[in-house]
Simulated assay, not measured.
Amino acid sequence: MAGLTNKQKKEWAYTEYVTNNLSQKEVAEKVGTTTVTMTRWVRAGNWDEIRRQMLVTRDKQLGRLYAQFDELTRAIELKEEGKRYADSKEADTLNKLTSAIRSLETEASVADIVEVSKRLLNWLRPIDAAKSIEISGIFNDFIKHSLKG
């Protein structure tokens, strides 16, 4: 793409690779760079990990946690009468599951952040393509920061 800086190409490539799930080759062709450069950007920016994080939605994560909580609770309820309470290990696990559930229910996940950024960028792109590329880079930095948690 003529007229774009290398930084702008990288930000655009990030959006196409991570949020639109295009291959490195497809992205390289689309943004006007080489596959070698794409490979370097993907590795340096940990883009594959970001992609994987997006695959597990909050609902799926919550569903898994609730299932684990329910299974442990059922196991405790099936104990013989007078022993239907959590031992220290079970209590610790229940506490950790409860904390993880609360966290997921109240905090934005990386997948949520990416989804919002994708919607905003898709809306902005026809209005101001250069601005959408600039904001894409900002979202990229924020997502990386969020992954470090």
Rank of each mutant, 00 (worst) to 15 (best):
N140F: 12
I127S: 08
D70F: 10
D128F: 06
A129K: 15
A28K: 02
K131C: 11
E29N: 15
S117R: 04
E49Q: 14
T15E: 13
S117M: 07
R74V: 15
E49P: 03
A28F: 00
V18E: 02
D70S: 13
T93P: 07
K79G: 05
E80K: 11
Y17H: 01
D128Y: 03
Q24P: 08
S103G: 07
S109H: 00
D112M: 08
A44R: 11
Q68E: 15
K7D: 13
L22G: 09
E115D: 15
A111G: 10
W41L: 01
K118I: 07
A108M: 14
A13N: 00
G32L: 01
V110L: 03
G63R: 00
V56Y: 12
E77T: 13
R58C: 02
V31T: 03
V27A: 06
I50D: 08
P126T: 06
Q24F: 11
A2W: 15
E107W: 10
Y14E: 05
T35M: 09
G63V: 07
K144L: 10
T34G: 09
I113H: 08
T106P: 02
Y85C: 08
A86F: 01
R119L: 12
V31N: 04
T39V: 08
V110P: 01
T34F: 02
V56K: 09
L65R: 06
V114L: 12
K30T: 12
A75P: 03
G32Q: 04
R52C: 06
N21K: 14
A86D: 01
A28M: 05
S99M: 14
S23W: 03
E71M: 12
A91S: 11
R119I: 08
F69K: 13
K30E: 10
V110C: 03
R40D: 10
K83I: 07
E107L: 14
G149P: 05
S136C: 04
S109M: 08
S23P: 02
G137D: 07
Y85K: 13
V114F: 09
F139P: 10
I138L: 12
D87P: 03
L22R: 15
W41R: 01
N46C: 09
F142K: 11
N140M: 15
G63A: 01
E115M: 13
G137S: 02
S136R: 03
D128C: 04
N6L: 12
G82L: 04
T106W: 06
E11P: 04
L121K: 01
G3L: 06
T35Y: 09
D128H: 07
A75N: 07
T33K: 07
D48W: 03
G149H: 13
K89G: 07
R58E: 08
N21Y: 13
L55S: 13
L4R: 13
D92L: 12
E26W: 02
D141W: 10
D87L: 01
D112W: 04
